[in-house]
Structures are given as C-alpha cells and as structure tokens.
Amino acid sequence: MSERLAADRSADHAAIDRLSSELLPALIAKLGATGLGELEVREGGWRVRLRRPTGGGSYNTRDRRPGDKDRSVRSSAQAAANPVGLTPVGPGRDDRNGREGTGSDIGRVVASSPAVGTFQPRADARAGTKVREGDRLGSVDMLGIPQEVVAPADGVVGASLVEPGDAVEYGQELILIEFATSAETEA
C-alpha cells in the first residue's frame, strides 16, 4: 500500500462530498426521468455507477441460458461438450414473442445481424459515434443482397464484436451500443 499525500486525501473527500450533495440527487432524478437502466459518471479519479433494480429499466436483460452465449457456427467439439439429452431446454420463448434481432442488456444494447452473410461496417459509424435508433451501422451481404444493420436504440457506438468481412449468421451480435453518459447526454 503506497503512502498517499494529505492533499490527495482532501481532494478525494471534497469529491465525495460533491458527489453525494450535488451529483447523486441530480443523477437519480435523471435516471428516473430517462427510463435508462444504468448511468455511470466519471469525476476525476472517481466513478459512480447507478443501476436500477432488475426489471425496472426500459431494457430488460434477455433471458439467456448458460451455453447460449455463442451459438454462431458451432463446432463439433462444442456439440460433444454439450451432449444431447443432458441439457435441459428452458422456455426460451424470445423468438415467439416477436422479439428478434436485438440482443439487449442493462446499460447497453447490441445491434445484431439481419441475415446470414458477410458483415461490412459503415465507415462513419466507428466507435464513439453518437447514433439514434434506426441509424445504419453497416450491412450484411446475403448472396449479393445487402441487409442493413441498424442501431436498436439511441446511444454511442461501442466495441465491434466481429471484424469487417466476417461471416455472420442471422441474429448474431455485431456491435455494442453503449448508453450515453450524463455528460454526453447534457452536451
């Protein structure tokens, strides 16, 4: 443990004071007003994350089952590790409820593939770009027919889960969309 300077400690205390007295009430109000599931604020070396109780956000965690994370082009090795008959199959009714093509999670959503084909991102939709729901992020080429990949919600383009030119299957998660932080929302 390193020796910390008295000046640093007092700066920390000042930051904590400011967070609890000014920022937090404002953030809580903001969280309630926006209907977002999660907010994160960085202030100097500090970071505060507010998260709604599960189910309270406008984006619910998808009912994921273990082992369901990456079914893209499964290998026989995976199939062998997941022997038939030993895997209880849960309700998994996502698709029957008409929700498809959009993975979601608290604090972020994922743009997924509208088709089976090769993925090409849009040059002007790189990480950090602010997007609105329905904005084009790229396309999946299905036998020469381009199928648009669109942002499932307002936010900021985050990490890409596939490389340009990758083969992707229908429904595969392609690009993370992070929700805007409070600073960016206010900007």
């Binding site: 079914r71 082009v73 499964r74 088709a115 089976v116 299957e169 229908y170």
Partner: peptide, 8 residues
C-alpha cells in the same frame, strides 16, 4: 458438425 442460423 456445425449449425448456422439462417433466419426467424
């Protein structure tokens, strides 16, 4: 050996 999702 492999499986690939082609649509809804």
């Amino acid at each position: 050996d492999e499986a690939i999702c082609i649509g809804p």
